[in-house]
Design a protein around this nucleic acid. Structure first.
Lengths: 352, 352
DNA sequence: TTGTAAGCGTTATCAG
DNA sequence: CTGATAACGCTTACAA
C-alpha cells in the first residue's frame, strides 16, 4: 500500500506521476505551461489514486473560496427560491457554488450569517436582509470587507445595490383601473416595513394622485405578515357597505386567500371585482380569467446583480457604490375589467 | 500601524494580547483550560483588531468543515424548500451551515455536485437525487467516503436512508373513498420514475386490491412532469363519458390546475367529485371545502435523517447501513364525500 | 494553565 | 516548461 489512511494529496499524485508538486497543481488549474506528456501522467496518477482536491487548502492558499453567499429571509418564499436557483445556475457555469442562508427576519441571525460569510471568505455575497432599518444589521453590512450586493432593500450603506422599481408598475395598474372607472381600489398588503411593500404603496398612492384622487386609509388592508392567512380580513373587506370594485394584493398564499374569499362571497372576476396580484404565483397560472400581475424579470435582476458583483470583485472595494434599477412589469389580463355599472352593495337586505 | 494589508490572523491577536498562538486558539474554541485573565486579554485583542476567523485554515487543519451538503432536485419545489429550511435551522443550532445544491434532475450535475461535496469535505450530506436508476449517479453515491443519508429514494446503495411510507396513507385514502362508494377513482401523477410517485401508485393499487377491485390503466393520468400544466389533461379526464367520481392528485401547481379544471367544468367538491391531494400546498389552505391530503411530518423526517447522519458521523463508515421509515398521514377533510347517487354523465346533451 | 512547533494540502514565487 | 520551497492561518500534540 502506498499511501496512509487519509485521502491522497497532490503530493502523492506527484510522486506517483514522477513529477513535482507544482506540475500537478498546474494541471489541476489548467494552466498553459505544461507539456502533454506531463499532463497525461498526472491525470493518470490522479485517476489511479482516486485523488480528490482539497478545497480548504485551495481556499487558504489562494484566498478565494469560489463560493458566493446568499442571505435571504426565507427560501420557502417562492420569489427567493426562484432567485436562488437562477443565481446557482449562473454561478455554477463559472465554477462557483452558492451558499444559501435564511435569516427568517431575525436580526441577530442576520448578523451571525454575515459573520459566517466573512469567516468563510465568500468571494462575494448577495443579500436581502429582512431588517432594513435595524442599525446593528446595517453596521454589520457596512463592515463587510468583501464584495456585497444588496438586493431590493433601502439600506443606507455604501454597497452596490439592485433595486426593483415597484412603484412604477403598480402605478400603471392603478391608472388602468382608474381609467376603467374604478375608484374604490383596495390594496392588501403586509405590515412589513421593507422596501418592496413600501414602494408598492407609494405606487398605489401615486396612481390615485395622478388622477387627482386621494388614497383612503381604510382601503389599505394590512396583514400581520405575508404568510398570515388573509381570508378573514379580505372577507370583511368584501362585506363592507361600499365594497371595493378592484383589489390589488400580495401574491403567493395571500392571493390564494383573496381568490377564495371572493369566490366565497359569490363575486365574479372581473364582473364584480377586478384583481391585480403582486407577482404571479404558479398556482394561479391556470386560473380563469388570468390574474393581472405586477412582476419583475428575475433573470434580469439576477444578471444585473451578478454584473455588479463581478465588477466589484474585479475592481476591489474602491470606487463609489453603484445602483441599478430593474423595471417592473404590469401584465394586464382578464382579471381586470370596467367598474360595475351599479354601485355595488353588500346585500339587498338591510341591516335588521 | 501594526499589521500588514491582509486580515489579522490568530498570530496578530496573540502578539497583541501578549500570549501564545495556542492560547488564542483555545479561547476561540472555548476549551476549558484557560485562565480568565488570558481569555479577557485575548477577547479584547480580537475586538480591537476586528479579528475574523479563517474558516479555510480551520477546516484544513481540523479536517472538519462544519458544513452539511444538501442535494435536492429543485428548491423551487416547496417540499424541498421546507425541508431545507428545517435542516438549516436544526444544523445551525450546532454551528453547522448547510450548503444547498439543486441538481435539476440532471445526472451529470448530480455527479459534479457530489464531487464538490467531496472536495469541500462536507461533514455529511443529505441527498435526494433525481435519478434513482442512473448507474453513474449510483456509483458516485457509493463512492462517497463521507457520511451520507439518502432521502426518500430507492437506491441500492450501502448508505443510510430515510424513506417515506407513501403507499400506506394513499391506501388509506383509497379505502375511505371506496367505502364511500367510489369506484371510478382517478390518479393524476407525473411520469417520473422516482420513489415517491412509484410508491404512491403502489398504494393506489393496493387500495383497490384490498377491496377486491382492480386499478384501471385509463384512470392513471400521467403528466410529463410535476411542473407541467395539468389543466388540459384533467379537463379531458373530467369530460369523459364516465367521469371519475374521485380524484387523487399531485399537490403544488398540479392541484391548482385540478381545482381550476373542476371549477371550469362546473363540478362541485365533494358533491360531484371527491379530491385528495399529495401534500397540502399553502395556497389550498383557505380552499372550501378543505382538501384532504396525504402528507409527511417534515420535522420528523428531518429529525430522523439528522439522527442517522450524526450517528454515522460519530461511528464512522463501518457498520451496516440503517434504514428508517417515516409514516405518511392521510388527513380527511371536506373534499371527500360519498359517491354521487346517480352515475354521472358528461352532459345531458347527446353527441350531435 | 500556557508556550512551542509541526503540520494540514494547496498555490505562488522563484530558480533552473 | 519544470522543480524546489516558502507561505496561507489554523489545530494539536507535547513540553514546560
Amino acid at each position: 500500500m502506498k499511501s496512509k489512511a487519509g485521502n491522497p494529496s497532490i503530493k502523492d499524485v506527484a510522486t506517483r506521476a514522477g513529477v513535482s508538486l507544482g506540475s500537478v497543481s498546474r494541471v489541476i488549474n489548467k494552466i498553459e505551461n505544461v507539456s502533454p506528456e506531463v499532463r497525461k501522467r498526472v491525470l493518470q496518477a490522479m485517476a489511479e489514486l482516486d485523488y480528490r482536491l482539497n478545497h480548504a487548502a485551495q481556499t487558504l492558499r489562494s484566498r478565494s473560496s469560489r463560493t458566493i453567499g446568499c442571505m435571504f429571509t426565507d427560501v420557502t418564499n417562492p420569489l427567493y427560491a426562484k432567485l436562488y436557483r437562477i443565481y446557482e445556475e449562473k454561478f455554477r457555469e463559472n465554477g462557483y457554488m452558492v451558499l444559501l442562508a435564511n435569516s427568517l427576519n431575525n436580526p441577530e441571525w442576520e448578523i451571525e450569517i454575515l459573520s459566517m460569510f466573512q469567516s468563510r471568505r465568500m468571494d462575494g455575497i448577495i443579500i436581502a436582509p429582512g431588517n432594513e432599518r435595524d442599525a446593528s444589521v446595517l453596521a454589520a453590512v457596512e463592515k463587510m470587507d468583501l464584495p456585497v450586493v444588496i438586493l431590493d432593500r433601502d439600506m443606507n450603506a455604501k454597497k452596490d445595490q439592485v433595486l426593483f422599481d415597484h412603484a412604477q408598475a403598480v402605478k400603471e395598474a392603478m391608472l388602468n383601473l382608474i381609467d376603467q372607472g374604478h375608484r374604490e381600489i383596495a390594496f392588501v398588503v403586509s405590515g412589513t416595513h421593507t422596501r418592496p411593500m413600501l414602494r408598492r404603496i407609494e405606487g398605489y398612492k401615486a396612481g390615485f394622485a395622478a388622477r387627482g384622487l386621494k388614497a383612503r386609509a381604510d382601503l389599505l388592508v394590512k396583514l400581520p405578515s405575508s404568510t398570515e392567512p388573509a381570508f378573514d380580513l379580505v372577507t370583511e373587506l368584501l362585506q363592507r357597505q361600499e365594497r371595493p370594485t378592484a383589489l390589488l394584493t400580495l401574491g403567493t398564499s395571500v392571493l390564494a386567500d383573496v381568490l377564495n374569499a371572493i369566490e366565497a362571497q359569490g363575486l365574479r372576476i372581473p364582473r364584480d371585482i377586478s384583481v391585480v396580484s403582486m407577482g404571479d404565483p404558479d398556482f394561479a397560472r391556470s386560473h380563469r380569467p388570468r390574474i393581472s400581475s405586477v412582476t419583475v424579470d428575475l433573470n434580469l435582476a439576477v444578471q444585473e446583480s451578478i454584473d455588479l458583483l463581478v465588477t466589484r470583485m474585479r475592481e476591489g472595494p474602491g470606487g463609489a457604490p453603484r445602483r441599478v434599477m430593474v423595471p417592473t412589469i404590469f401584465s394586464l389580463q382578464g382579471s381586470c375589467g370596467p367598474v360595475p355599472a351599479v354601485t355595488p352593495r353588500k346585500k339587498p337586505t338591510r341591516k335588521q
